[in-house]
């Protein structure tokens, strides 16, 4: 699946670029892509490093445990396969909360940690488990309450009501999260065998 998507994106891009005389751009893009990736990596890594340090303290002091306990009735319903009180639940809870407040930089390290601990529960190490996919859907549906980037962009363009979108964002996010979780449930049932 990944192989086909990856291959076809590159093939389509190169062939289309060739036919429209865009091949120089493609050429530069290919050479440039490792540099762009490295830039992104350098952006992610320091943030992950500092949050992993903070998280370690939160873990040892059982603060994370406390946090996930407050959300656990909801989480155990969403993730029936995770044993109660497992560490991954506290990371998932922290990731969701960080996402809600638009703290993308903090959410990513929590999410990576959550994935890491979900992988420990996973029986087939190269295949995504059901809990992992549910977690991803929860993430990609964008549980954001305060979309900080957009608000500041709106402010930049002289919006009179930069925060006017917050209510609409919350409603749309709830729709996409619930809808995504339903799709996830249905597919999980179909793929069970």
């Amino acid at each position: 699946m990944v192989n086909i998507i990856w291959l076809s994106m590159i093939l389509i891009g190169v062939i289309y670029g060739l036919f429209t005389g865009n091949i120089e751009t493609i050429n530069n893009t290919i050479i440039d892509s490792t540099k762009v990736s490295l830039d992104l990596f350098m952006k992610i890594f320091p943030v992950v490093a500092i949050w992993m340090g903070i998280m370690e303290i939160a873990e040892e002091s059982k603060l994370l445990q406390k946090l996930s306990n407050s959300l656990s009735p909801l989480l155990t319903k969403l993730f029936p396969e995770i044993p109660k009180g497992h560490e991954s639940l506290s990371y998932i809870a922290s990731n969701v909360i960080a996402n809600m407040f638009g703290l993308g930089s903090a959410a990513t390290p929590f999410g990576l940690k959550a994935m890491d601990s979900l992988q420990k529960l996973n029986k087939k190490k190269d295949t995504a488990s059901r809990s992992m996919i549910t977690f991803l859907v929860l993430n990609t549906s964008g549980v954001t309450i305060v979309p900080t980037t957009i608000i500041s962009l709106r402010l930049m363009y002289g919006s009179l009501e930069p925060t006017k979108i917050v209510g609409a964002c919350i409603i749309s996010t709830i729709c996409s999260t619930i809808g995504g979780l339903i799709v996830d449930r249905l597919l999980a049932r179909r793929y069970k065998n």
């Binding site: 994935m115 190269d126 992992m132 977690f135 991803l136 859907v137 990609t140 995504g180 793929y191």
Partner: peptide
């Protein structure tokens, strides 16, 4: 990002489910 960091290669229905969530969000907005 998330699957890469733990070495998952078979992503199963995750891409489809994620894109469906996006679509639902777009329609809702």
């Amino acid at each position: 990002l998330y699957f890469g960091c733990v070495g998952i290669k078979k992503i199963r229905y995750s891409l489809f489910a994620g894109l469906m969530a996006d679509l639902i969000g777009m329609v809702a907005s």
